[in-house]
Design a protein around this nucleic acid. Structure first.
Length: 291
DNA sequence: CTAGGATCCTGTCAGC
DNA sequence: TGCTGACAGGATCCTA
């Protein structure tokens, strides 16, 4: 979600008020509905979905899923004035020659091209009448985002899935929206809750702590600019993993926990890679034995 | 209704 | 080198 919000904000400056002159679909699976053209009159976000509203009454709903990317390139290829923007799953595509074999859709504007790249083809662009966007099958089921949600509401959501792991439940977009695998791990670490805890075992106090952690972890990531291209260049000129800027556990297995020095471990939970500190994230509320 | 696993697809990496 | 399986920033579908 922080990546999508970063794209929404960054892309606005390039395409808001601009006219889409043509849409090229390079992969049928990646585009649902009949291509629609018009002037971009709004960019909205619903959970991890980006919605581009057009003045023709149609909207483009974009979900990047695991490997989707949106990359803007100005039409002018003079390097003095060329500018770009890239967000989503970070890869060489951010700086590569486009289109390439992972380009699924191109949205042509008068002064540039927006490339939708997606290695695994899980993501998509879907045309929906603007008035029907909120009835979309994905959007209509979304729960509130952490900022709009009370601890009581999150607590109820956890109780509804009391026998599942808390990690699996906070990834469920119908319980709380916006968290992906990274932010689930980071929020649980911040709240010092073991990812394998039964969702129904969390106290109201822990639930409040977890909710606060979700908010701060995602706020920090949005501040860091998600995985945008211009965001993070290391001192030696190479591009770094933007996660290095704030991630405490994600992809950090094998290194020391910042809080206690214990080695961060990685396990598989809810079908997903899960990173945590076995010392400070306890299986019980009072921090008793942890196995 | 919930819980858990398979599935969509391409690419990379470790291990043999 | 080639093969194999595991895994990957997500969500849905199917089964029990």
């Amino acid at each position: 979600m922080p990546e999508v919000e970063t794209i929404r904000r960054g892309l606005s400056g390039f395409i808001l008020g601009k006219k889409i002159t043509g849409i090229q679909v390079l992969c049928e699976k990646s585009f649902v509905g009949e291509p629609a053209v018009g002037v971009v009159c709004g960019l909205r976000r619903f959970g991890k979905a980006l919605v581009i509203d057009l003045d023709c009454g149609q909207s483009l709903m974009i979900h990047l899923r695991m490997t989707g990317q949106l990359i803007w390139r100005n039409a002018c290829d003079n390097t003095e004035t060329a500018s770009g923007f890239a967000g989503g799953h970070p890869s060489e595509n951010f700086v590569a020659e486009l289109p390439n074999k992972q380009t699924r859709v191109t949205l042509k504007f008068e002064d540039g091209i927006l490339f939708f790249n997606d290695q695994r083809k899980f993501g998509f662009i879907k045309v929906i009448p603007t008035v029907n966007v909120e009835e979309d099958s994905f959007i209509s089921k979304l729960a509130k985002e952490p900022w709009k949600m009370t601890a009581g509401e999150l607590f109820d959501g956890l109780r509804r899935h009391k026998n599942s792991s808390v990690k699996a439940v906070i990834l469920d977009q119908t319980v709380v929206s916006g968290l992906g695998n990274i932010y689930a791990d980071e929020a649980l670490y911040s709240a010092m809750i073991h990812p394998a805890r039964k969702a129904g075992s969390l106290s109201m106090e822990e639930t409040q702590k977890l909710l606060d952690a979700m908010r701060s972890v995602m706020e920090k990531s949005i501040e860091a600019g998600g995985s945008t291209l211009q965001n993070y260049v290391k001192a030696d000129g190479t591009r770094g993993d933007y996660l290095d800027l704030f991630a405490k556990v994600y992809h950090r297995n094998g290194s020391a926990c910042e809080r206690c020095g214990t080695e961060i471990v990685k396990i598989k939970l809810a079908g997903r890679g899960t990173h945590f500190c076995p010392q400070c994230q306890k299986m019980t509320e009072d921090g008793g034995r942890n196995d």
